[in-house]
Write a protein that binds this DNA or RNA. Structure first.
Lengths: 199, 199
DNA sequence: TGTGTTTTTGACTGATTGGTTCCCAACCCT
DNA sequence: AGGGTTGGGAACCAATCAGTCAAAAACACA
């Protein structure tokens, strides 16, 4: 017994993706509601009706980022279609490099950005960040397990190596935001992988 | 021929340090002028007279951070009083860990935070970040040169290893902000150093 | 066509933002 | 003591902030 009424004139996911772009490039405090309205192409009231307040919208955008970017990355790391886990890790790092080489995309990782400037101010954001970081670490863990040359790594080592790789991954994305040249970024990425015995 | 007049009633460096604390914990957009006034214990007019506008004050605070934190870190890395460069690097990483273990300091690195959320919006901040990051890399470079076991690293490798270590350093500070436990952070740090053959 | 329900829209609100201005106080130098 | 110069402080500013609301509009169902 649901009475249907006037339907939404905009696609929620499209609007969310637009909001994500804005938050991604300008940060939470840096974006005003008007910025969002312009990007999402909806009116003020519609935004509040559909997404609640700004904070809530930010959280939704973060979830959207998880869906768009984190999950694919994790899936790449876990994906068995490429048997060598090292290859999967190399491919993940390669995507970062290509983003800056090809498109000069300097926005970095929205998760990383959020962790840096919002996680400590909002418990919900904090939780979401921790969970997504955990997913990434798990991804690295799975990839490390599928190394061609397993060289006797016990559980403990595997786990810390996974966290360490995630740290390197985040660090690299900070490096991107710091304005280093694509070639420096590539060299650094390859060096890191080499140190981890993955190249 | 300078005519002196009424002297300042506050210490500029003290005020700058207070401002730095606020910016560090709340971020640029997250801090209002009133926050700064309260922390710096000065009146509105005094702030603008002494430091110019908010953006300028932020830049000054960044320079202050360089003086307080970056320079000592770089000096530690370059310092010849400890002959083994590996030991110096280990000590630097240890300071991060102790900050979170002892004081639960989750503010991370102000330079890193700034690079993430401000560098792309202001060319001056961008330049300052790049320069400071460069100093850090140079520090790592010097330390790597003074390794006990130099194992034939040519110039190119040394430089990329330095950048790679700086990336790991930044990544670790993002990890701190993501809320990981001190023990996880310690394990990850040690694992990273191990992978680099520094432990 | 009418009724009920939901969305859209834009005007509106009160609070807060960063920044300015102006007057008086405080100080140095002669 | 007095002139010149600067800092201090509060009132003040326009602009922007996030968020609300009521009326109009668009649909489903009868």
């Amino acid at each position: 017994m649901q009475k249907l009424a006037r339907p939404r004139e905009f696609d929620v996911e499209d609007a969310l993706n637009s909001a994500l772009q804005v938050f991604w490039t300008k940060g939470y405090e840096g974006t005003g509601i008007t910025d969002l309205l312009e990007a999402m192409q909806i009116a003020r009231g519609s935004l509040y009706k559909a997404f609640g307040d700004k904070r809530n919208l930010y959280l939704s955008a973060l979830k959207q980022y998880e869906k768009n970017c984190i999950e694919p990355a994790v899936q790449l790391l876990r994906g068995k279609e490429i048997s060598d886990g090292g290859q999967r890790i190399r491919m993940l790092f390669e995507t970062i490099i290509l983003a800056v080489e090809d498109d000069n995309d300097r926005r970095g990782c929205f998760l990383c950005n959020t962790a840096v400037d919002q996680a400590s101010h909002d418990p919900d954001v904090w939780k979401a960040c921790q969970q997504m970081m955990g997913e990434m670490v798990q991804g690295f863990y799975c990839a490390l397990k599928d190394l061609e040359d397993p060289e006797g790594q016990d559980e403990e080592v595997l786990e810390t190596r996974a966290m360490s790789l995630n740290v390197a991954y985040n660090g690299l994305r900070v490096m991107v935001k710091s304005g280093y040249s694509p070639s420096d970024i590539r060299k650094t990425s390859e060096r890191t992988l080499t140190e981890f015995g993955l190249l």
